[in-house]
């Protein structure tokens, strides 16, 4: 393996870069979509801040439908939609759309769970003191749940890395692509194992950082 170091290093570093790029872009956009959806899934419940049965049912159903599809199937099924949005269904650009569609509802669901942990009594207290719904959402609910939300984002991020690897199928680049082309198609074991090790290390680092951050944010004593 050592004698191939010069050959493999750029291969791995480019793939890692591509993975991080795809993950970062889709995570940011999916968060921007997913967190508000998660908030809506909480506050539109009966007896919450803004009860609305139709909005809740609609969101709940859509999230459930998307969540029941494995990424590989979702990615192929929405190819026309992907082409409509970014003009192509392959490469990094083609991968980002399905990644967002896949992970945003996941984030919504996780955020919903984290927000439901905030005791409704606290929300009532601030409603009683004349806080607006917007203030309650941003300054009370999201803030009180921030440690839980960070853990959710950690889980989502790891899920996203897994999905990104699968996007190798559509030639999206990244570590998945590398493992597929070299590792699988040419049965290049060093590349295969190298990818596996990089993924493991990556996930470990993210999870540890997430746990550490959540603990910091949870500081209640």
């Amino acid at each position: 393996m050592m004698e191939r170091f010069d050959e493999l290093l750029p291969l791995f570093s480019i793939s890692l870069y591509e993975t991080i790029l795809m993950v970062a872009i889709s995570l940011v956009i999916a968060t921007i979509i997913g967190v508000p959806l998660g908030v809506l899934l909480v506050i539109t419940r009966a007896d919450h801040l803004a009860p609305n049965r139709w909005v809740f049912q609609l969101l709940n159903t859509v999230v459930n439908i998307i969540r029941s599809l494995p990424f590989i199937i979702l990615m192929l099924a929405i190819i026309p939609f992907t082409e409509l949005i970014v003009g192509t269904s392959i490469g990094i650009r083609g991968a980002i759309v399905p990644l967002i569609v896949y992970i945003a509802p996941f984030i919504a669901r996780l955020v919903e769970t984290a927000l439901l942990e905030v005791d409704y009594g606290i929300i009532e207290a601030y409603r009683g003191m004349g806080a607006s719904r917007g203030q309650i959402v941003t300054r009370i609910i999201l803030r009180e749940a921030r440690s839980g939300i960070l853990l959710c984002m950690t889980i989502a991020l790891i899920g996203l890395i897994g999905a990104t690897a699968m996007a190798g199928v559509i030639g999206a680049g990244g570590l998945g692509d590398l493992a597929l082309r070299y590792g699988y198609q040419q049965w290049d074991l060093p590349v295969m194992f190298g990818t596996v090790i990089i993924l493991i290390v990556l996930v470990q680092i993210i999870q540890s950082l997430g746990n550490y951050g959540a603990k910091k944010l949870k500081k209640t004593a």
């Binding site: 009594g121 606290i122 009532e124 207290a125 004349g130 009180e144 209640t220």
Partner: peptide, 22 residues
Amino acid sequence: ELRNVRKKIGIIFQQFNLLASR
């Protein structure tokens, strides 16, 4: 208008309902 009235009505609870993160 209701929120403005509420600002002048304090409320306390059996379960305190404090912000744990603050």
